[in-house]
Design a protein around this nucleic acid. Sequence first.
DNA 1: GTTAGCACTCAAAAATGCAGAGTGCTAATT
DNA 2: AATTAGCACTCTGCATTTTTGAGTGCTAAC
Lengths: 345, 345
Amino acid sequence: MELDNRKVVILTTIIKNYLETGEPVGSRTISKYSGLNLSSATIRNEMSDLEEMGYIVQPHTSAGRIPSDKGYRFYVDQLMQTQRDELDDVRSEMFQKVDKLENTLKTLVKALAEDTHYAAMVSGPTVHTNKIKFIQASIVDARRLLLVIMLEGNLVRTATVSLDGCEELDFNRMLSINMLLNDELDGLTGSDITEGRIAQIYARTSFKKTVGSILAAIHNILSVNGSNVQIYTSGATNIFKYPELSESDKASKLISALEQKDELIELVHDASEDAEESRNPIQVYIGNESPLQNMADCSVITANYELGNGLRGTIGVIGPKRMDYEKVLEVLNKVMNEMDQAFRK
Amino acid sequence: MELDNRKVVILTTIIKNYLETGEPVGSRTISKYSGLNLSSATIRNEMSDLEEMGYIVQPHTSAGRIPSDKGYRFYVDQLMQTQRDELDDVRSEMFQKVDKLENTLKTLVKALAEDTHYAAMVSGPTVHTNKIKFIQASIVDARRLLLVIMLEGNLVRTATVSLDGCEELDFNRMLSINMLLNDELDGLTGSDITEGRIAQIYARTSFKKTVGSILAAIHNILSVNGSNVQIYTSGATNIFKYPELSESDKASKLISALEQKDELIELVHDASEDAEESRNPIQVYIGNESPLQNMADCSVITANYELGNGLRGTIGVIGPKRMDYEKVLEVLNKVMNEMDQAFRK
DNA sequence: GTTAGCACTCAAAAATGCAGAGTGCTAATT
DNA sequence: AATTAGCACTCTGCATTTTTGAGTGCTAAC
């Protein structure tokens, strides 16, 4: 069977209507709102075909139809085509009064959740691809150093380094170590710090133990190791607005997933891979397409942002399958552009 | 009427039973489990008295009784007395592998939620009472400084300071400013930085604009201003375990309150005041006793911890009114001791 | 003072009934 | 051949009723 034009119109009508109401949609409704001027009986025949082809399903006999995952997928793919060449450079005030990326992200994710009425998440850039801008180790007391690393995007990371078993330090020695570190590591990313590079640094200092501890700490901060990825979420309670998500224990599982974040890290990871592969920064996961457990009833839309210089992260919106794809795609596009603009300099 | 011994036993039995089951408890149940060897009829008479005295209520005629807020209060006060002189120094592994207070708190709140099966929160110490241990300003580029402040408890705060309109800086000038700042501010708390002190600092430098910007940033970080209080929460979804909290839109409001945190800040504030006033670090808020909106059906137990040197914060557990007060009090006591032990050095 | 017994009450659960929306099929129409 | 009207049937959601069971208050007996 072929998906001719009329079937497409009917399918789209079903989906749009269902997105609005959340109720299964019946033949009579379509005959009224599709603009096709067909009777409900004809529509019924077509719907029967669409069901056979797998685009829609009946929650139970004698109910209207709702889109299947395949149906949503068709709809979204159609949207993506028209969406792709749309350009929107509305300036928002979101990026005005922030000096650190962390704060921007927190503000952003909150705004996103409020704007879309879905749950939103954003991952801080995975630091292992960020270039080191500035390193500063300072003596706190006899046994500890405070290590501060500033990365592209004014991202600051700190750690304390234990000096047990290391060389005695004084101010001038500390100074020379700092100069050495900045000299050697400036502009590098976590993955640039190779064995060879480390050997080279060792060769230039006599405080091998201290420098060793510091390098270990730096490595720890910049490692790919997932626990370093910052994830901010907001608007988790928005899911209560959608009965199909808040019933029984679904809400609990969902909110728990948003709270725990380890699953989200996986999502971010997958999303950035898929984005690269398909050369489209925006990805849509419908139901079980997403790597998340307990999210079979959700859709997830992710956008991978890039702030020049390899600074990358992921924004995402999580909502019911019947989310307003059109709007969310638009908003995410806008946000991506904004971030681009704001940080390009 | 007097609350004689038998009434106390009956009341306690009612409460304990209700804590377990969540169902109103009837006279027959008590006659079986109170250990008093009285018939249900006698119990009924006593219950009638207890109701008149306001310790228990009937959700509707011909239902069992449930404790009123006054009843809970009586029970908790009784517990507090026995609890007070209990000592428990079980060593946990919670505090082993952390070097920064932030991480400790995150781990702690998670463990607390898992352990109690209620929602848990912990506030980072209010930094305005923390002593400054170490200040370091570094030149990032021509227009910006990175300011790092380390406070008691290895608490690190960073900020970027704009240099627009300030004096030209080089390495040596920066050095002298740092020395000046550490010299003047070491060991002070936010509230110690008075007008007079600032004037004194100005008198000792010729880079007045730069130092002014830095001091402003420091003041901003250390100000009482609530937005600086860090609050971590965990286990929000535990409330779904208690039907009386998860019904209708209560769950949504509760989780939203936990997510937004501004109400929690208020709670922390109140809790520390009440703790000081009553000279008891542990406070119990039953129903409407708590300052939180939307929490009339919850109880909140808070514990104010202190890590020597005036470093203070609040841990809290939020659960249904029928929470296991005994256990939570015990756990909080233990945690308080642990924190004491771990950070005393 | 305590207990047994009975009539009464009420909420929750189960059963029942009904209206409405929707379908599939067939026969009539275009 | 495609479309439509019509009808019998199914299923849900909702409201109403019935049933059940737990629990009480009261009175009379112990």
